[in-house]
Write a protein that binds this DNA or RNA. Structure first.
Length: 293
DNA sequence: CCGCGGGCCTGAGAGC
DNA sequence: TGCTCTCAGGCCCGCG
């Protein structure tokens, strides 16, 4: 669920509430997620001050004052909300009974200013883990992560380098976190539509014999960056579970061109096509067969 | 090494 | 109203 733009939206919401603040109390209400929380998580967080919040791929990273880093992943259905007494009804959001944990509130942190940070994950596909910051790059979850698509290093040339000789479809390649980190099902579909590239094309076919990007790869790199940036600016996409930290939904779902729009007309000006849904690698792909080639 | 399918969970929505 | 079925934004594992 949360892809790069949703995680980035959460990160930006957490910064003002969390950075420079001490965790006065931590409660682990349920730890049996798909990848269980460390049993001592609450004890290790208590008393720590958060010095910064980073994002890598779809992971949130909270740096602590003792050199440790808290890794947080939101899985398919996770969210983090900030509660301050009296302000827990967000514009367009939902109501949380003040101070009373809801279903699937697995971790609650109380900060030195009385703010509560609540980690909620109905499907329990998320994770939290604590480790020395210096070991992050070598951690199994991080060791094989590919390029950040919003970094300055990312572009047509970098994209071509990771697609070269790949036999898999370009859609599956975009979802492969070892190649590009942070793209999920929604933004893979949207970027391919914006670039006019069929999701069924072989990834390696976007690279020329000499290893340079074909025109399509250059277009795809630019489209991916543009769609991710627009989604971040819109606060991400809320199909169901994604919320900003104030409880309000993102707005990018109103701007989907193909995702979840099977049977609807292709929005590309001049295109008479109809959005189709196919299954690739067990996941839905939405695209326009007329203008995506 | 690569690519694919299954499994992990809960909840919403469709169809009967 | 209620049951059953399908599907969902992610990722790990094991198989060929």
């Amino acid at each position: 669920m949360p892809e790069l733009p949703e995680v980035e939206t959460v990160r930006q919401g957490l910064i003002p509430a969390l950075v420079g603040h001490r965790i006065d109390a931590a409660e682990l209400r349920r730890g049996d997620l798909r990848r269980p929380f460390p049993p001592a998580l609450a004890a290790h967080l208590t008393g720590r001050t958060v010095t910064g919040i980073r994002r890598r791929a779809k992971y949130l990273l909270a740096d602590l004052d003792n050199g440790q880093v808290l890794i947080v992943h939101l899985g398919m259905s996770g969210s983090i909300r900030i509660e301050r007494d009296g302000t827990d009804i967000a514009p367009g959001g939902f109501h949380h009974p003040r101070g009373r944990p809801g279903a699937h509130d697995h971790v609650i942190l109380r900060l030195d200013d009385g703010t509560r940070l609540v980690y909620n994950d109905p499907r329990r596909f998320g994770l939290m883990e604590l480790l020395p910051a210096a070991e992050l790059e070598q951690h199994p979850l991080f060791r094989h992560l590919g390029l950040e698509p919003l970094s300055s290093a990312f572009g047509g040339v970098a994209l071509a380098r990771c697609l070269a000789r790949r036999k898999t479809s370009i859609k599956a390649a975009l979802l492969d976190q070892r190649l590009i980190a942070g793209v999920g099902n929604i933004y893979a579909c949207e970027a391919l539509w914006a670039a006019g590239i069929s999701p069924r094309r072989q990834a390696g076919a976007l690279v020329r014999q000499d290893g340079k990007p074909a025109v399509a790869a250059t277009r795809l790199a630019a489209a991916l960056r543009a769609v991710l940036e627009a989604a971040v600016a819109a606060g991400g996409s809320s199909l169901r579970d994604h919320r900003r930290t104030d409880g309000s939904p993102g707005a990018f779902q109103h701007r989907f061109s193909v995702y979840d729009r099977e049977g609807q007309p292709c929005p590309k000006p001049g295109c008479r096509g109809t959005v189709r849904r196919i299954v690739q690698g067990g996941r839905s792909t939405f695209y326009c067969p007329d203008c995506q080639r």
